[in-house]
């Protein structure tokens, strides 16, 4: 565990907490893409199957359980509890266009052709693009609430910090995982446009509004 990995995990944790609190406090999931949240639930489910096969550390186990639990809780809040506030007219990204390529790529490019390994690889590929329905929704409505922007910034920072962690680990431990690294870079690049808007607008107290 190094400082980049730890802050990355904390940014990820923060993002999830911000999102859950926003929905819970406002009793509304307006502006949140339920489809992105479904994709994240699929990502954690397929990645953390090793919870029952491999023990790494108490930290690792607790975080995995939290990510799994919170992702299902978020999906429940959006599609069941606060269904009436869900903005489905603007959440029109076709997730099969992300899931199918991730499945095919996981079958073609993986570390080992075993069920657990392929599911892990699939989760890595899917995570890298899972935010697209949310970004699509923001671009479609042309704006995002500040709290949604904070959520996106924390979530984008997480994989960015993981890249620093991978550089550090490669230098210090000669440890690297090409699949995670390439997918992590793709994932971070997808946020670049948003990062720019966040820094130039949201941090200056303005609402995140896209030019018409």
């Amino acid at each position: 565990m190094n400082i980049f990995r730890l802050t990355g995990d904390l940014a990820h944790l923060l993002a999830i907490i911000i999102l859950l609190l926003k929905i819970w406090k406002t009793r509304s999931c307006a502006g949140i893409s339920g489809k992105s949240q479904i994709l994240f639930a699929i990502v954690y489910t397929t990645r953390y199957l090793d919870l029952v096969t491999t023990y790494v550390s108490a930290y690792n186990t607790l975080m995995k359980i939290f990510f799994l639990g919170s992702s299902f809780a978020t999906v429940y809040l959006i599609y069941v509890k606060f269904k009436a506030t869900y903005d489905h007219n603007h959440d029109t990204f076709r997730i099969e266009f992300l899931i199918l390529p991730a499945v095919i790529l996981a079958l073609l490019i993986n570390h080992a052709f075993t069920p657990l390994e392929i599911l892990w690889t699939f989760s890595i590929y899917l995570e890298s693009v899972a935010i697209l329905p949310q970004l699509f929704m923001v671009s479609k409505t042309g704006e995002a609430e500040s709290i949604t922007s904070h959520y996106l910034f924390a979530l984008g920072s997480y994989r960015g910090l993981y890249i620093l962690n991978w550089i550090y680990r490669y230098a210090m431990e000669s440890h690297y995982d090409l699949i995670a690294i390439v997918a992590g870079i793709v994932q971070t690049v997808l946020y670049c446009d948003f990062f720019y808007l966040y820094i130039t607008k949201v941090l200056k107290g303005k609402k995140l509004q896209l030019p018409a």
């Binding site: 990995r5 995990d9 990820h12 090793d50 491999t54 790494v56 550390s57 690792n60 975080m63 995995k64 990510f67 993986n110 570390h111 080992a112 052709f113 390994e117 892990w120 993981y162 962690n165 440890h175 690297y176 995982d177 090409l178 699949i179 995670a180």
Partner: peptide, 10 residues
């Protein structure tokens, strides 16, 4: 196939 690595990250 690239080498299998320990999955100690989240």
């Amino acid at each position: 196939n690239t080498k299998t690595v320990v999955k100690d990250e989240l």
